[in-house]
Simulated assay, not measured.
Amino acid sequence: MIHSKILDNKNENNNLILSEKLYKGACVKIKNSNKTFQVVGINISKKICWVREWPFACNSKKTFALEISQITLQIFCSNNFSE
């Protein structure tokens, strides 16, 4: 089941610092990537989320699971597709 409730994102190793809560629809950066991704689902109990590249192509449905600890930064989702 996909949870859309807000998640407190705390990392015991202090490797991850997010200024806001993680939520479905948030845009994030992840470790080892310069791309922007959008959170499309969250499983709080398993500490994973599903993301897709942002902006996404209308004909593309490529999502993948990711450990929440792999998120490095939450950012604003720009509507400017030239970025």
Rank of each mutant, 00 (worst) to 15 (best):
N13R: 12
N13I: 06
N14C: 07
N14W: 06
N14I: 04
N15A: 11
N15T: 12
N15F: 09
N15C: 07
L16R: 12
L16H: 04
L16C: 13
I17A: 05
I17L: 09
I17N: 07
L18D: 08
L18W: 04
L18M: 11
L18R: 02
L18E: 06
S19R: 10
E20W: 01
E20M: 04
E20P: 00
K21D: 14
K21H: 12
Y23H: 11
Y23G: 07
K24D: 09
K24Q: 13
K24H: 11
K24T: 15
G25F: 03
A26P: 01
C27V: 06
C27L: 03
K29S: 10
I30K: 10
I30A: 06
K31A: 11
K31T: 08
N32H: 13
S33E: 08
S33H: 06
S33K: 08
N34T: 12
N34K: 14
K35N: 12
T36F: 01
T36M: 01
T36C: 04
F37R: 05
F37Y: 15
Q38Y: 00
Q38A: 05
Q38E: 15
V39P: 01
V39S: 05
V40M: 05
V40K: 08
V40T: 15
V40C: 05
G41K: 03
G41Q: 03
I42F: 02
I42T: 06
N43M: 02
N43W: 04
I44Y: 02
I44T: 12
I44D: 10
I44W: 00
S45Q: 09
S45A: 13
K46S: 13
K46F: 02
K47M: 11
K47N: 11
I48G: 00
I48M: 08
C49K: 02
W50H: 09
W50N: 12
W50K: 14
W50Q: 11
W50R: 13
W50F: 07
V51K: 01
V51T: 11
V51H: 02
R52A: 02
R52H: 08
E53P: 01
E53R: 14
W54H: 15
P55W: 02
P55R: 03
P55I: 09
P55K: 03
P55H: 07
F56S: 15
F56W: 05
F56N: 14
F56Q: 14
F56K: 11
F56C: 10
C58T: 14
N59E: 12
N59M: 08
S60G: 03
S60T: 11
K61G: 00
K61N: 14
K62L: 09
K62I: 08
K62T: 14
T63Y: 03
F64T: 10
F64P: 01
A65T: 11
A65V: 07
A65P: 10
